[in-house]
């Protein structure tokens, strides 16, 4: 009985998160913000449990996964369980990190418990070691300026276009390519 209630609670949590993502994909920024916020706690718990030997990597990987989920958010299919999608991305990023780390640590956790992804959550963010702000500075101007204006200073695309002297589509493309380039820099071991 208790188990059933527990499962219901988890499903309700996933459903709430899924609705926020879908509203976010439809353009609701605050719903999307809430989605990412709650998701980062779930990611942290998931990764901390699996990176027991590498606690310093956890926050970096949380950030890398968030960036990946954001950049690849168009691959979420509304008919698909959210857990399966997020679990697959987090697992992919985790394996990618472990491969990058010359396999010093043996992978002990089978990492196949997709169903308990939302059963734990961790709001205790440690400091990230990699500073994404610094990486951002290394992007070329046509990508950095659109990101800084629209995503850090909160200007609209039209305003950012006026301030930077770029066209609106160049601003949008710059943001999109810049975030992808950021992910590529992380992947390359920056």
């Amino acid at each position: 009985m208790q188990r059933i209630q527990e499962t219901d609670r988890l499903n309700a949590g996933e459903e709430r998160l899924r609705k926020r993502l879908l509203r976010g994909l439809a353009g609701d920024e605050s719903a999307y913000h809430a989605f990412l916020q709650e998701l980062s706690a779930h990611l942290r718990a998931f990764l901390r449990k699996r990176l027991v030997g590498l606690p310093d990597e956890v926050e970096d990987l949380v950030q890398e996964s968030l960036l990946a989920i954001h950049n690849q958010r168009h691959t979420y299919d509304a008919g698909q369980p959210l857990t399966a999608w997020i679990h697959a991305i987090a697992k992919y990023k985790l394996i990618d990190l472990l491969r990058r780390r010359v396999k010093r640590e043996q992978l002990t956790d089978p990492m196949d418990e997709e169903a308990d992804f939302f059963s734990s959550s961790d709001n205790n963010a440690a400091e990230a070691r990699r500073d994404l702000g610094k990486l951002l500075e290394r992007l070329p101007e046509r990508q950095r300026l659109p990101i800084v204006r629209t995503k850090l200073e909160g200007l609209s695309v039209a305003e950012a276009a006026r301030v930077t002297g770029m066209s609106e589509s160049a601003v949008k493309v710059g943001v999109h390519r810049g975030l992808k380039a950021l992910a590529a820099m992380i992947r390359g071991g920056a």
Binding site: H33, L66, L136, G154, V175
Partner: peptide, 23 residues
């Protein structure tokens, strides 16, 4: 950059995602 700041940054002006983009 802290994770909360990254979340702010990613969400800011995230815009609409076309569901048919992949097809």
């Amino acid at each position: 950059m802290k994770t909360v700041d990254l979340v702010d940054m990613l969400a800011a002006g995230a815009g609409v995602v076309e569901p048919s983009a992949t097809t």
